[in-house]
């Protein structure tokens, strides 16, 4: 896990000396993904640039192995950034309240509900979404292959969350029993399917993964 010392934390930020106007110009020049024109973002408290821990809106995110510069509001969740700023719509919003798991992504290999973490909190960490699982040549991740083999889902709105939760869990426990895997992916809700079929697909994925690694 990357060391979160203060130096590191600010290293991916714009140097403090740069004025706001220059910063914005820089952003535009750099072609960073800009936010929508949210016009009421100026919060009641004036951003205290000198205060320790103050944050800038322009951040660098490491998503699926790529560095992405993006303009992020203070109250923006990672799911929103991924879906609306970075075009990664494979991460779904089912409840937006950490109650369904459809938005599950990996942050430093650990499954998180991306609806319930500020994008700013995920800076400097490795974010993996469903789009980042398959190889560049299109070869499916072993867990994705397991789902294809077993047709584990129906509507599949929950599927990317389930796959990400499974991939994350298998990093900790690569050889789970069915019951262990069920516990491991219990933070994901499915409304169409019987969980039994999902579990079968994911067990198949686990087996696929053991074969390749």
């Amino acid at each position: 896990m990357p060391d979160k010392s203060r130096a590191d934390q600010t290293s991916d930020e714009t140097p403090r000396g740069v004025s706001r106007r220059e910063l914005i110009k820089g952003v535009i020049a750099a072609g960073a993904v800009s936010s929508g024109a949210y016009l009421f973002r100026s919060s009641i408290v004036r951003a205290d640039q000198a205060a320790a821990g103050s944050v800038e809106r322009l951040v660098t995110l490491s998503v699926n192995g790529q560095q992405r510069r993006v303009d992020v509001m203070k109250q923006e969740t990672l799911a929103t950034t991924l879906r609306y700023k970075l075009g990664l719509t494979g991460t779904k919003l089912g409840c937006d309240r950490s109650e369904c798991g459809a938005c599950t992504v990996l942050i430093d290999d650990v499954p998180h509900y991306s609806c319930s973490i500020l994008t700013h909190t995920a800076r400097g960490k490795q974010i993996t979404t469903i789009e980042g699982l398959a190889s560049a040549d299109g070869t499916l991740h072993p867990v994705q292959q397991g789902v294809v083999s077993e047709q584990g889902f129906q509507c599949a709105f929950c599927m990317s969350g389930f796959i990400m939760a499974t991939v994350g869990f298998l990093k900790v426990n690569p050889n789970p029993t069915r019951a262990e895997l069920a516990h491991g992916i219990s933070g994901n809700l499915c409304r169409c399917q019987d969980y039994d079929k999902i579990l079968t697909a994911m067990m198949c994925g686990a087996e696929n993964l053991r074969k390749v690694s």
């Binding site: 010392s5 100026s42 919060s43 408290v45 205290d48 205060a51 821990g53 509001m73 109250q75 909190t121």
Partner: peptide, 19 residues
């Protein structure tokens, strides 16, 4: 929809306490 707020992410307890 979350309303706007100013965000601080202090790196030390002392900074957090001061804030």
């Amino acid at each position: 929809i979350m309303p706007a707020f100013e965000l601080f992410q202090p790196a030390t307890v002392d900074d957090a306490l001061r804030l």
